[in-house]
């Protein structure tokens, strides 16, 4: 039978920064083909297909909080596979190979992580699960 794709609305204009992305205009309606946990979603718009940032999309049928896992305040252990330097003041700067605790896996690909006393956003694409849960 036909595959039903979720429809999302673009909330702000976005200019693509690499070849296989889509340019977005506020109000455009996109069909989502694949939701990658790194925050890039493969979308269809008219006859075009490409990647769009989930952070610029909202579901047509209201908030998608049901899709988003609840925060896990105990934390799940991950290792950084790449360093990242914070750009916004709510982000964390980490080096390659650091172990951190993931508290909230947000759909836009920016996860809330904790390192010691500090908590902030980090790109999920630079994290790899160690498969362990933190012992309390």
């Amino acid at each position: 039978g036909p595959i039903m794709l979720d429809t999302y609305r673009v909330i702000a204009d976005y200019s693509k920064s690499s070849k296989y992305e889509l340019n977005l205009k506020a109000g455009d309606l996109l069909d989502i083909v694949e939701k990658s946990p790194n925050g890039w979603w493969f979308c269809q718009y008219d006859t075009q297909r490409g990647w769009a940032p989930a952070s610029y999309l909202e579901p047509l049928d209201g908030p998608d909080e049901s899709e988003e896992p609840e925060p896990n305040y105990a934390g799940e252990l991950y290792k950084t596979t790449k360093g990242y330097t914070a750009v916004e003041d709510d982000e964390l700067t980490l080096q390659l190979g650091e172990t951190i605790e993931v508290i909230h896996k947000l759909l836009d690909g920016w996860w809330v992580v904790r390192k010691g006393e500090k908590t902030g956003f980090y790109p999920s694409m630079f994290l790899h699960s160690t498969g362990e849960r933190r012992e309390l």
Binding site: N38, G39, W40, S55
Partner: peptide, 22 residues
């Protein structure tokens, strides 16, 4: 076939959306 997703982190949500989430 689906191309690989971009290798760079996606942009953070637009500023007004970010406030709404907090």
């Amino acid at each position: 076939s689906i191309k690989q997703p971009p290798q760079n982190p996606p942009p953070r949500p637009p500023a007004d959306m970010r406030r709404k989430r907090l």
